[in-house]
Design a protein around this nucleic acid. Structure first.
Lengths: 131, 131, 131, 131
DNA sequence: GTGGTCTAGACCACT
DNA sequence: GTGGTCTAGACCACC
């Protein structure tokens, strides 16, 4: 059995579930929390754990397989790929964070908030969510 | 003629155009860049400026009218509502930025990035987008 | 000068202003409150009294003229037509009320309200609005 | 398959189709004819049954979802919401009938019809439409 | 199968 | 000129 707790979804969000899963998987692999060769939860397991339709899980896994992050093994559960599934350097991981922060910066600008204030708010939120 | 330049859309994004417009309008009003009583660009104007179908603009405007931010005037352009269309305090505006920053914080955590590094990246992005 | 107070509009309603005016005029003539040959308020007068665009008034008057209820006199204000502008019998006037009551009956049925209750509510509303 | 017969539209009326559907849905839910958790006809089903464009149906459903009466389930039919979709007491349902009756009362007054006559006409119409 | 989004374009209603 | 409504039809996303 694999650790289903690594994946969490928000059914209320507008973002589709399968995409939430894909992006989470990319980050977990980049951070080294999912290591090359490691088994990932089976479609059934994760489907039960998240109360999500199996086909939704399967769609996410298929796309991750297509981009080379996961590998399918006949008759066995999928594993993190050896080639593309390597933990990345901090600098590379930071790049994965850039799009969301760029969006936040654009919103701050439209809200007329000075950069210092936006930065202070981010610091506060990071501190809150840390422990 | 109203200032159509206030509104910008990203056709590549997954977020629907009409929703981009809605959220931009909320921020522009909160920041006081769209003032109570001010005329907003007509559906046809904005449609032409953004190269988007008029109905897409209309859908955004209708929803903003439903939430009380815009007011319809029969046969005339819509205006920012007097009641709900007031500029907000910096603290209130900062709250509108919170959801995106909270998402960024969650992603940073999943990427295993230390808060200091996430903060530094945000500072850099804010500086880049400023001028 | 004519009696502008006979006409009242509700700008908040979804029903267009010009149609509100037309239907009010029909009822006032049918009830004999506007008599054949009587002058009606000029477009300018009524426009000022109701704070409505003159063209809106004019549109209502033109349609009433087209259906023969009003007559235009060159250079003078319009008057209630001699032919079609006659007060009607109570039975005929009641017919003008039928569409709205039929709608109310349909709504009562969809709401699952027994006829007796709908009738009692109507009686109460009539009493309230009488004085 | 859901019961499309609950919804009926009048294409001749000036009231837009999507609004007719919205108001019917509110009444059906208030009357308990549409119960919390119950599936409503799919957009395509109702579109075919009423010979109306799917987008018109969709517009009504979206607005009902926005006011909390319907709930969307990703990829599945919409259902009546558990919270706001409760049947209402007769007194509350009667309140939904009040606006139309108030309009009828105002028209009766303008027609110079005595309340007793208006009431008698309503009673007759209710009896006609009952069976 | 479900609903969502967008386009193209017509027609109407209002001022 | 303004916005509103509807149709026809395409494509997408989700389950």
């Amino acid at each position: 059995m694999s650790d289903t707790a690594l994946f969490q979804i928000n059914t209320g969000a507008t973002e589709p579930i399968y995409r939430q899963l894909i992006e989470q998987a990319r980050r977990l692999v980049a951070a080294g929390q999912l290591k090359a060769g490691q088994e990932i939860p089976s479609v059934r397991e994760l489907s039960a754990a998240l109360a999500v339709h199996p086909m939704t899980i399967s769609k996410a896994y298929s796309q991750l397989e297509a981009e080379g992050l996961f590998e399918r093994r006949r008759g066995l559960s999928m594993v993190v790929a050896a080639q593309h599934g390597q933990a990345q350097s901090p600098a590379t991981r930071a790049e994965l964070l850039r799009p969301t922060l760029a969006r936040a910066a654009a919103e701050a600008h439209q809200l007329g908030l000075p950069p210092a204030q936006a930065l202070a708010l981010f610091e506060q939120i990071l501190a809150e969510s840390q422990p």
